[in-house]
Design a protein around this nucleic acid. Sequence first.
DNA 1: ACCATGCTTCGACGGTAGCCCAACCATGGT
DNA 2: ACCATGGTTGGGCTACCGTCGAAGCATGGT
Lengths: 230, 230
Amino acid sequence: MVAEHVANDADIAKVAALIADPTRAAVLTALLDGRALAAGELARLAGVSPATASSHLARLLAGGLVTVATQGRHRYYRLSGPEVAEVLEVLARVSPRPAVRSLRQSRQARLLEEARTCYDHLAGRAGVELLTHLVEAGHLVGQDAFELTAAGEAALAELGVDVAAARASRRRFAPACLDWTERRPHLAGALGAAVTRSLLERDWYRRGSARRVLEVTDLGRKGLAAMFSY
Amino acid sequence: MVAEHVANDADIAKVAALIADPTRAAVLTALLDGRALAAGELARLAGVSPATASSHLARLLAGGLVTVATQGRHRYYRLSGPEVAEVLEVLARVSPRPAVRSLRQSRQARLLEEARTCYDHLAGRAGVELLTHLVEAGHLVGQDAFELTAAGEAALAELGVDVAAARASRRRFAPACLDWTERRPHLAGALGAAVTRSLLERDWYRRGSARRVLEVTDLGRKGLAAMFSY
DNA sequence: ACCATGCTTCGACGGTAGCCCAACCATGGT
DNA sequence: ACCATGGTTGGGCTACCGTCGAAGCATGGT
């Protein structure tokens, strides 16, 4: 039968049905910019319980609208491709109201992209840049897992990081963690956590209003600039 | 509230929900090429009862995906704009199977566009062209309703049309009927019906496999060419 | 006046889909 | 070994949605 190779009405309807639920639509629009978000975060954004979100995500996955990547105990979901984003945009264009995200939403998205925590260490753009600078400054060497140089140990000590304690921890010392918003690695493990703790203690970063969001302070901007001579 | 002016997830979901039902999807794809189709025909194409189709059409109308125009006892529905068609096309692209209509479907669509009956008279491209030629040949004069010239009366008599009987009918003699597939008028009324009857009797046109579909015969092609010197 | 046709509305039925709670599994840190 | 956190799975409830038959309107032809 030729008909089996044809995108018929039923197929269109199936895809549309996946988007037709408000919760799933919220999940999809949250992923519109191509970032990958953890299941829990998506549940929070959509305003449903983790169980409900999980069920929706499973259906979106089965329908091929999203893909998933497991990292640690998180499962990061993202749109499966640009066509999916296109569908959402076109749908928004058809719907009567203009397709602009609310200020509050997009501002929050920016903040998350800027800096957030991944477990207990700095992630997002800020996390990626921090690692980049540490490597460029010759403080860290390595690939998937890093080691501190003498200069690095001194620099971090000055920042108030208890490197010895981090090294003593049973946790992996300084592994790279692929950042899903930046697609480049940031510093994780015991050292990453210790650095982040120091940054918060020194008030270079402050916890933001939304969960996981960190905001750089004026003090932090100056301190980081001095440290890496921006 | 700013939120009221924003196309949010709920709006996208609403539009998607309109397409999410297989029956509605069938209706929409039937309208994909911009033609306007009567409610009954859509019901038949979608394979549901008129009642069901009517309910779906009402929802599509309320959702702004289609518009309606009443003509006589028919209600012609069409897509409200190209954006709607775009949505369907993009959705088809996302769905796994290639977005090609089956040969049988599109061939049938072509036939309908080519020639079909509207009540009991010739419509579609053939109907529009017939009227155009009759007017250009000086056989008919008028605007919304036509009158036969002497030359026209002779020409139609030669075709086997019983003009006298048509004129005697209580039915309107030769009104123009706006053709919704061509957006130009075709000949309706008693004369339109009489002409169509003659065309069928002479085997210039033959009823096709699908309802309302007419197909021109080789004989008809020759006859029409001679009549209007194509 | 009367009937036929096309379409919509009403009411009722059945199925399905979304939601949450609670329990379960897996991973990571201590 | 133990706990905490993040996610998924199963069960049960509710609500909504699609479907059709029958009845109601409107239009057109006789």
